[in-house]
Each structure stands twice: as C-alpha cells, then as structure tokens.
Design a protein around this nucleic acid. Structure first.
Lengths: 226, 226
DNA sequence: TCAAAAGTGTTAAGTTTACACCCATGA
DNA sequence: TCATGGGTGTAAACTTAACACTTTTGA
C-alpha cells in the first residue's frame, strides 16, 4: 500500500481520563487512584488509560471505567480534550476526559482496594497529577450546567431515595443551599419522580418516603426543571 | 534513553477541525472548503489540519484558523474530541473540533478563494466529509448554550452594529423569532451595550442607531442575560 | 405619498424567593 | 419527654410574554 498523505504527520499517544463522581453522606465524591506506573508513580490521579489501536475513544473510556468499577452500564459524558505539549511529564500524551455518574453503593470496596482507589470529597481534593484537577473542574462545570435541565442526578443515587437525599445531592453539585419547601414543590410538579410505598428509616426516627425516577414517564413528558 | 512505559501503547494521528461561524444578511454561516488532498479530495469539509509535534492542540486550531482567515485574535472554544475508529476513511485520525466566531467582514474574499473556501448558510449545508456535520451540530449546540449567558455574540458582528442586526443574530443562532420590544428592553438594561452617535443608513431610509459592546464596562458588571 | 425599517410601554401570566411551624418516632 | 429529621402553604418580588402603533425618509 502506498504511504498515505497522512503519514508525513506525527502521531501521538492518546489517553482517556475518567472523572468518576459518586455521592455519599451529603458529599459529592470523586474516585481517585494511586498512579500505578512511572513517571510519578504513586501520586493521586484520575483513573486513565491509553486508547487502543482499534478502539473508539469513547469505548476506551468505558473500558477504563469498567476496569476500575466493574460496571458497564454507566452514564458518561465527554468533558473535552486536554492537549498541551507538556501536560504529561512522561511523554507527549493527548488526553480526553470523560465524567461518569455512578451510584456509589454499586462499587465494591474490593475493587477500590485492588487499584488503590478511594472516594475523595470534591471539597477536599489532594494535589493531583498533571492537569487532573483542571479536568475535574471541567467535569463539575459541565455537570452543573446539566443538572437542572436533564434528569442525570438520579444516576448518583440508589434506585429509591428520599427527597432529603435528592436535595443534598443538588446542594452538593451546585455548591449552594436550597430551600426545602421550594425544592419539594418543584419535585411534586414532576410526574416522573414518584413516591413509592417504601420508607427509609435509616436517617430519621420518623422515616422518610422513598421516591424513584421513572424513566418511562419521563420519555412521555421529557420536561425537567429543578 | 530507556523506552518509557508509554512506548508500548499505540500512537495516532491527531487533527483539529475548525467550525468557523460568521454572520451576514441575517444568516448564520459556516466557512467550508474543498478538501485539498486525498482521500476524498474535493469534498466539502471543515478547515482542518494535523497537530504538530511540539504544538499544543489549541495552538494547532489557532494556526489552522489563521491559515484560512489571516486572523489571529479570534474567539475560539473547544467543542470536543471525535474519536471513532472509522471516522476518517484515510487512516485512523482522532480529531478535536473548535469553533470560532468571526466578524465576516474581516475575511477577505481572496483568502477564501485561495483555499476554495466559501461561506455557507447553516440552514443549507451540503453533504460534508466524515463526521463534520456532527461537529457543526455540536458547535451550534455549544454556541446556543452560551449566547444568552456570555457576551460572545458580538464577535460575529462589526464593532458597531444596529439593534436589528443584533436581534437577527440571536434569532439565527437560537433558531427562533424574538419579540422586538422585549429584546430591546433587555438590551437597554445592559450598561455595556452602548449607543454611539453613529447611524447606519444602509438598511433603512430612516437610519438606525449604531451600538457597541464596551468590554471595559462589562468587566465591571459582568452580568449578561439576553 | 407611500413603502420599509426604526423605535417605543403596558399589562397579564408565570416563576422564583422568602419564610416557620407541626409531625412522628426511637432513644 | 425530647431531640431529630420529615413534611407542609402562602404572599411578595421579579421575570417573561404578549401585543400595535407612530416616526422618519428616500424613492
């Protein structure tokens, strides 16, 4: 085969990095790991990996996510490409960041341990490798801009949740207090956030009603405003 | 030098593609060019180019933009990375799309000609190379989400513009009609959109007042809502 | 004189915000 | 019995949406 016109141009390592968000005890969290190879082995970083030869970039992100969490049916969204010449001190690597929203209960402690991974509060991030903090900020910005327009927050909660949990989630993502009555009023207007007959007794003596997001109802009336 | 850990991983061609928006005669336009090399030479496409070895990805986008337009102080924003295995039929190429907003008057007809480039209406796009139409849709979506929150629209207009031009621009970007009186009321509330003593006589017999965006005032009161 | 675009305010509807007390229960 | 979190409504402020006529001037 004749060399293509393209072959005169340089090639680059291309990686993906995953910002994996979780939510627990009123805190928005990110899954971090100890970097397992040189250079800068042992530093806190996002979970990442190199794109393979015959792999879509998005598939690479799914693969990396699954490696760490064992989960594959996960909500993911691209944050963007990070391509400064010197962003990686090992060699030139262009990295594409994705964020994922997962129900933290679904990730077993084992998997975390195997990769020296742990959930850190968004408000308490340690120094991170390369431009990973920038990537996290980018992901949070994107998440904030979506959370009031699309029903993505539910991905971070168990299938059934209390309204207090939901409100705490919104407060954690947006970084501001929300009025309880106003919040519940809006929830009440959305037919696809449904009260179940379940009751959560873990966080209060009285017990709180459990709600669920019904994606079928949402398909019929896809209007979300929280 | 010892082979780094990275070197076992594959490398890829990385390109940038530019969605260059302009605005003329009430129409939002995109600058397209005839692809100048094989494969698929001659097809309509976005202006693009390969990232160079010691060049930031963003710098590559600026360079490509300047090549085509001769301009360098241009508003640009990353749209995202496009990384499907088969998106480019020539070889595997991962491309990072950027959109640019430019005052169409600043691009000389010559430059366009040299690159077989022309301005096409957003509503009248021809079939495009690869996933370039998807990139344009992504860029438009991003632009729409910004236009009411940040004063970026002015980049598409000459330094002095009439309120009718500004309104037509918003209508073109958002794809919907806007009420003239409501629009002008909001403009009037923004101290950084200032009436000049200039009058445009080109589009009406009566003449319309020319306004300008004053970035200095905006720095002091950066609250934009249109 | 008339066609064509510029310019100008008011009202109703809807949305957002602020705000405080009673309820149910387990310890 | 009391401490803890769950649950509930109303009114004022603000924002958005709908709507039509007069002005200027060159052809």
């Amino acid at each position: 085969m004749a060399p293509s016109y393209y072959s005169q141009y340089p090639k680059f390592h291309v990686a993906v990095d995953c910002i994996i968000f979780g939510f627990e005890q009123g805190q928005l969290k990110v899954l971090l790991q100890k970097r397992p190879f040189e250079p800068r082995q042992g530093e806190w970083s996002l979970m990442g990996g190199f794109v393979r030869r015959d792999e879509d970039v998005e598939a690479a992100a799914s693969r990396v996510l699954q490696q760490l969490t064992g989960l594959h049916d996960i909500y993911m969204k691209q944050v963007g490409a990070y391509g400064s010449v010197n962003r990686d001190s090992g060699d030139r690597v262009i990295s594409i960041a994705y964020f994922a929203l997962i129900n933290i209960e679904r990730v077993s402690a084992d998997l975390n341990h195997e990769y020296s991974a742990y959930w850190e509060d968004m408000n308490n991030l340690p120094p991170l490798l390369f431009d990973h903090k920038e990537m996290i900020q980018g992901a949070l910005k994107k998440l904030r801009s979506m959370i009031n327009r699309l029903p993505v927050g539910f991905q971070l909660l168990p299938p059934r949740f209390t309204l207090t949990q939901l409100q705490l989630l919104y407060e954690a993502i947006l970084g501001e207090k929300i009025d309880k009555r106003n919040f519940r009023k809006k929830v009440g207007e959305m037919s696809f956030i449904q009260k179940t007959d379940g009751i959560d007794k873990l966080t209060s003596k009285r017990g709180a009603a459990l709600y669920q997001f019904d994606s079928e109802s949402y398909r019929h009336e896809p209007i979300f405003r929280l």
